[in-house]
Amino acid sequence: MKKVLFITMILVFVLTLSIYAHPPGNIEMNFNMENKMLEVTVPHNSGDNSDHFINNVKVYLNGNRHIEQDFIMQTNNDVQYLHYMIPGAKSGDTISLNAECNKFGSRETEITLD
């Protein structure tokens, strides 16, 4: 009986945590070849963008970490906007980005430059 109660409590805790914490949504990335600027939109809904937010972003150019940035809050309660200059990027290169929530989960996306 104690085992069943313990397992039930653990399940309730895990399910409750997943309601309040979630990974970022589908990341949008656009790269402007003319000014070598990467524009990123990371959807991430939060009731309080200073308590539940995107806390870390890593940008990779051709598999090599190029940028890593930590945050203490997100742009607003719905999204994190980012702009990065990547001067060495050229046509055919691959840029990937990993965004991590401070509570739970992460998401990665990748683009190949034209």
Score class of each variant (00 low, 15 high):
S50R: 12
G88P: 00
F31I: 04
K3D: 07
S106H: 05
S46P: 07
P24L: 04
Y84V: 12
K2T: 07
N32L: 01
L17R: 07
F31D: 03
K58G: 04
I27K: 01
N77S: 15
A99Y: 00
Y60I: 06
M37H: 01
V59D: 06
T112K: 01
G88K: 14
N45G: 14
D51V: 06
L38K: 06
N102H: 10
A99W: 00
I95T: 13
M9D: 05
D93G: 12
N32W: 00
K36D: 02
N77D: 15
M73T: 15
A21L: 03
F53V: 12
L113S: 12
I10G: 06
F13Y: 06
I54W: 09
S18Y: 04
L38E: 08
N32F: 02
L11N: 10
Q69L: 06
K2L: 10
D78L: 14
T112P: 00
I111M: 07
D114V: 12
D70V: 06
S46Y: 02
I86F: 02
P87N: 12
R107E: 14
V42L: 09
I10N: 05
T16D: 09
G63Q: 11
N77Y: 12
G25W: 06
I86M: 04
F53T: 12
M1D: 09
H83R: 11
E110Y: 03
M33W: 00
L97F: 05
L97A: 08
M29R: 13
E28H: 03
T112Q: 00
L15N: 15
S18I: 04
Q69A: 11
E39G: 03
I19M: 05
F104N: 11
A99I: 02
S18K: 09
Y20N: 11
I27G: 04
E68A: 08
H44T: 12
I7P: 06
C101G: 13
Y60G: 13
A21W: 00
P43N: 14
T75S: 15
F6H: 04
R65K: 15
D93F: 05
E39F: 05
H44N: 15
G88E: 15
